[in-house]
Design a protein around this nucleic acid. Structure first.
Lengths: 233, 233
DNA sequence: TGAATGGTTCGGCTACAATCGAACTATGAA
DNA sequence: TTCATAGTTCGATTGTAGCCGAACCATTCA
């Protein structure tokens, strides 16, 4: 049978510190150049190039060339999900060190997971959508009629989303919260809309910052009145 | 920040072939001795001992001594879940080689994931419970009243399950099916009940075999009439 | 054209970690 | 007691993979 080695090869790829840094740097879903990744990984350009070749060969990353740059991104949100699950395990087993710098708190509050919102806010978003009856289902979720109406009001082009081969709604396990948040095409669309509206700002790394009116708007839009009470700054 | 290394250390543990074999051998939730694991890993006893020490230090395994044996088991079902997710990714990215021996098909049909039912049957079980309105919710699922009644009829002591600190219902991503199946205390209890009733037999490894009347009983109990049609042998 | 920037390839160095033989401890059986 | 089985510890070996310096392509800009 030998199924062990199957997971071993991919796990070994994630097991090198430099590569792990590269992958987590890409968890925000953006595409980065080799030099940027070299900076994130803390190794030289040559070394980074070698790592990227391996990751690409294993289909964990995809590359595209633009001018004299090569941009790398995760090959799919499932890669990001594996990373989140691993962080979750690492935390449970206490492999976690130092603990909670100031940035850590920000990460727990709101961060980008590949291309959608994660952290407390991400979980709150999904819960809110469910409580308002806009979304139904468990793993393969779907929008209700009410949900369709809601999102056209929110200026999201659902028809376009449904055309792509990417699932519209997808549950994604949240590393810090241990609940699901909303991924998929809709999750991505919501985040980009939040940014467009100026509700959310993208900091360096994966941290997302809610503006003042953004926090209010978010809460009143997605978090129904009865569900409030635990909304940190 | 350096969060990369956090996942790197645990991923590196999973990345060694011998250790990966050890862990997958333990995925059926049973506790195995050092010698048994040495056999599964294909290395000598000394080497195995070293690996086990590392895995235990990282809290991925727990050990207990019994006479002159030492039994190792996964430290929790979350470890099993990480392994399943990794397999899932390995399959998607095509790290999978040779493909589908006869045993592979059996594994896809029904296998044990830590201590509960996985594979086609596992997914069917969860779907069936939902369709019959016995279970509700998405990630943190819960039994409905109807569900409570149903399982006392099935001779499962729910009160006992609820006393343990382990969650009663837990969604667990299925490696082969890419859907959820039912883990948690209830998932474990159901599987052990299925075995007690003689509906399911545990083969070597993780394969589960349904007896003839077991397959019938399972279908009529958990799979409501309208959901049938795709039940392989 | 030449210069500068972004990436890749090559070769050699280094370090680490997996492995096993052999010696040692502990439990149980005769 | 003595023997046998289960497991650990130690030391030495080995292989491999990460790393970087240096040289080499490729693209853009002047």
């Amino acid at each position: 049978m030998k199924e062990g080695p199957v997971i071993a090869s991919v796990a070994a790829l994630l097991g090198d510190p430099a590569r792990a840094n590269i992958l987590t740097a890409l968890m925000d879903g953006r595409a980065l150049t080799v030099s940027e990744l070299a900076g994130a990984a803390g190794v030289t350009l040559q070394t980074t190039s070698g790592h990227l070749a391996k990751l690409e060969a294993a289909n964990l990353l995809t590359a595209e060339k633009q001018g004299r740059h090569r941009y790398f991104r995760l090959s799919g949100s499932d890669v990001a999900q594996v990373l989140e699950v691993l962080m979750s395990l690492a935390e449970r087993t206490g492999a976690t060190r130092v603990r909670t710098g100031p940035k850590d708190a920000a990460l727990r509050s709101a961060r980008v997971c590949y291309d959608h919102l994660a952290g407390e806010r991400g979980v709150a978003l999904l819960d809110g959508l469910r409580q308002q009856g806009l979304l139904k289902g468990e793993k393969d979720m779907a929008l209700t009629e009410k949900g369709h109406a809601f999102f056209s009001g929110f200026e999201i082009d659902l028809a376009a989303l449904e055309k792509s081969r990417r699932p519209v709604c997808r549950a994604c396990l949240d590393w810090s919260e241990r609940h699901n948040h909303l991924g998929g095409a809709l999750g991505a669309a919501i985040l980009s809309r939040l940014i467009d509206k100026g509700w959310v700002r993208r900091d360096t790394g994966r941290v997302l910052t809610f503006t003042c009116e953004g926090a209010e708007g978010f809460a009143s839009t997605f978090t129904p009145a009865q569900a409030r009470g635990s909304q940190a700054a």
